[in-house]
Design a protein around this nucleic acid. Structure first.
Lengths: 198, 198
DNA sequence: TGAAAATGCGAGCAATGGCTCACCTTCTCA
DNA sequence: TGAGAAGGTGAGCCATTGCTCGCATTTTCA
């Protein structure tokens, strides 16, 4: 029988429990990877019984979706804060790069695991929407910097930056300061190249 | 009890069975992803019993390792063929780009799945060695093109190209010809940028 | 040609993981 | 203050998965 997952908790306990479950999932992903992410394990780490877990989430996927939502929302908020403050297109791009680096270096293992999970999962519409908003914000910034850039340029820029940041965040010997020049080189190397923008 | 996996098969049947198992694993990865890659499923798809599978491979990981070995070896051979023919450093780099695109577009889903698996697995030394050889060949080509490039440059170039090719190979509407200009823009944008090579 | 070696088989075991259900505890508010 | 609602519990079901073991079939070669 399918669960009717408990409605939005009215008591503050409920919110705390739900958040604890999501955070437990995050911590397990960091320490044990996707393979160790079992519902029993999540509940245990959250200091909660499995029964409780299934009162807040209809299934395991929903827990992951909630975590993705949390992360994307944080990222989006940070991007928007920067976008509001930036005065030139270039400043905005630079700000975005800082946001992306900060996000990834804050919890590198988590970010990487989530990215892996994301590509192998049919996401809940809700979480996908946030991801799309993030991409749209970046695409807009790229467009502002290089008005003649095609739609592929933004995707490429995201792909390139994401890959470089991921790679760096996983090596403990490389911090944001060591990464920044290489990242900017790749980013503006692509955007400012002589060849016509694709 | 641990298996003593059967020695190198002497009969040609043996070779065929082993190859069938590895190829079955590849096909399952393509169609169902890592989640569908079970030993029972592999055996069934290979037209072989699980018993046979475990006579050639001590465990599931070994099957994956064999597949990785197969793919890395093919890639390395292709790279070396190009390197032997190329007359200038730039030609070598361009050739490498073609090899990488060809490899990825040949079996896009497989390449992506293997990459995911690779980052979450302690590889058998044997397979890692091949991967390192591939990286070394690329690093050498980068060094030849840009002698003043630091050790990070090669890594960055690999990271960038891999990410762009991956991304493109997964979208059905983008072929090698649509990708090539963007890829070259990113590659030489990075390598030829004004800023000092990192 | 026949026996030993090589190869192949598949039921089924032990472990694991997602999830349910019947029940208990804490909170709220008339 | 007490009854119902909200929140919490955990043994255990069922399906799946990695893998073993005893045995059958095929190949090789003296």
């Amino acid at each position: 029988m399918a669960h009717a997952p408990r409605k939005q908790g009215r008591q503050s306990r409920a919110k705390a429990t739900e958040a604890a479950i999501v955070e437990a999932a995050a911590r397990i992903l960091e320490s044990a990877g996707a393979a160790g992410l079992t519902t029993n394990h999540i509940a245990e780490r959250a200091g909660v019984s499995i029964g409780s877990l299934y009162q807040y989430f209809p299934n395991k996927q929903a827990v992951i979706a909630a975590l993705l939502r949390r992360e994307w929302a944080a990222m989006l908020a940070a991007l928007q804060a920067v976008a509001d403050r930036a005065e030139t297109p270039q400043a905005r791009l630079l700000g975005f790069v800082e946001v992306a680096m900060a996000h990834q270096f804050a919890r590198p293992a988590l970010a990487v695991q989530l990215e892996h999970i994301e590509t192998g999962l049919d996401l809940v519409a809700d979480a996908t929407a946030l991801a799309h908003e993030v991409e749209a914000a970046i695409a807009e910034a790229v467009q502002a910097y290089r008005p003649e850039a095609g739609p592929m340029a933004a995707r490429d820029v995201v792909t390139i930056c994401r890959a470089l940041i991921n790679e760096a965040a996983l090596r403990e010997d490389i911090g944001p300061d060591a990464l920044r020049p290489r990242l900017l080189r790749a980013l503006f190397g692509y955007l400012d190249a002589q060849a016509p923008v694709v």
